[in-house]
Amino acid sequence: MDDDVQRAARKVRDVEQAVSEHVTRSGPITGRASSPDGAVTVVATPGGPPQQIAVSPAALRMGPHGLAAEIMRIADKAQRNANTRLHQTLDRVVDPRELTALGVERGPDEDELGWQR
C-alpha cells in the first residue's frame, strides 16, 4: 500500500510540475462569464470556488431572489468555461480522461463570452 501511495504521489508531483511549467507560460487558468446586460460577472477557477463575483449597481434592482438566481447561473457558466479552458490548456500534458475522472468536465467549445487568459 505504501509503495502504491508513493508511486501515486510521485506521479502527481510529476504532473504538477509539468502543469505548473505549462501554466507559468500560459498564465492562470480561469473562466469568465457575464449576464447579457452586464448585471453579474464571475471569474471562476477550474474545480474551485469563484475567484471574483462582480455585481453592477443596476443588478440590485433584481431583488435578493432574482440576483441570487442570476449569480448562480453565471457562476455555473464561468466554472464550465474554466473547466473547458483547463482541458484545452492541458490536453498535451494530462490525459483528458484523467481530468474528467477528477471531476473537471469539458464543456462545449463554442464559448461566446470569451476566456480570460
Partner: peptide
C-alpha cells in the same frame, strides 16, 4: 468543487451596495 448549489441574500446586503454584494458572496462561497 466550488459549485454554488443554493444562495440566499438578505435584503439588507443589497442596501450596502453592489461592491459589497460581490465581495460578501465571493467570501461566502469560498
Amino acid at each position: 468543487k466550488g459549485e454554488i448549489k443554493a444562495l440566499h441574500l438578505h435584503p439588507s446586503l443589497l442596501k450596502q451596495g453592489a461592491q459589497a454584494v460581490g465581495q460578501v458572496v465571493t467570501e461566502t462561497v469560498q
